[in-house]
């Protein structure tokens, strides 16, 4: 004999879309479910297409050669191929919170091999810039990139010591503790004269360089607004 409890359990096990209620027209209901289109919000995709190299994403035919070529695919949440698909589908959060573009080391293997000629590493650069602009900076690489640029643009040359200090100041104590086994590397670099403690001299044309940078960004903004 079937108890009411068991009957309810059996009913719950049936997927919602196949539930048949007494008195309802089963087929009408099915038709209603299947005729609803899947909705994609393409605002995000269009925004990405407008980036410097963004429109190349439309050329992707999902062959996956980038994925098999990628040096860091083991640590990537989505390989480049999947990331491009997610962009096409407008999945903003999935794209911007993934570590894919932050893991890219710009080794150019995918760029050299892509049968559609997509400059994949440049698209990744665009995504990094976009993520920083919109505050998706949880990954340590974001802090590293920002530290690199600040150091470079304030001196005209790179000073590794200053960049590392900036990076760890942004990331906080946890990261410093995690990096403790790096101290051996640091000490041996110091010992072999490869880590100057004082920054290099600022370049003489630093004023000019800063003017070039602000002009270039102004032109960029102008073109993006068009």
């Amino acid at each position: 004999m079937v108890t009411p409890d068991k009957e309810r359990a059996a009913e719950q096990a049936v997927p919602h879309s196949f539930k048949k209620k007494r008195g309802d027209n089963y087929f009408m209901e099915q038709k209603k479910i299947f005729s609803e289109p899947v909705k994609y919000d393409l605002t995000f995709a269009r925004e990405i297409y407008r980036l410097e190299n963004g429109s190349y994403i439309k050329q992707c035919m999902n062959c996956g050669l980038c994925t098999v070529s990628c040096a860091t695919r083991d640590v990537m949440e989505y390989p480049p191929r999947q990331l491009f698909n997610l962009i096409k589908l407008g999945k903003k959060e999935e794209v911007l919170t993934s570590n894919t573009f932050w893991s890219c080391t710009s080794c150019c293997t995918c760029k050299a091999r892509c049968p559609r000629g997509i400059p994949i590493i440049d698209v990744m650069h665009d995504l990094k810039k976009y993520a920083i602009e919109y505050g998706y900076t949880d990954y340590p690489q974001a802090a590293f990139y920002k530290a690199f640029w600040t150091e470079m643009s304030s001196r005209g040359k790179m000073f590794e010591g200053g960049m590392t200090a900036r990076y760890f100041l942004t990331r906080g104590l946890d990261e410093i503790v995690k990096a403790m086994d790096m101290k051996d590397v640091g000490i041996s670099m110091l010992k072999h004269g490869r880590m100057p403690l004082l920054p290099p001299k600022k370049i003489k044309g630093l004023g000019g360089l800063k003017k070039i940078i602000s002009k270039a960004q102004e032109l960029d903004r102008k073109e993006a607004a068009r």
Partner: peptide, 15 residues
């Protein structure tokens, strides 16, 4: 001056 390596464009863009 520094060329920016493969990092700078991730902050300020390729151009």
């Amino acid at each position: 001056n520094c060329c920016g390596a493969s990092v700078a464009s991730g902050v300020v863009g390729d151009f």
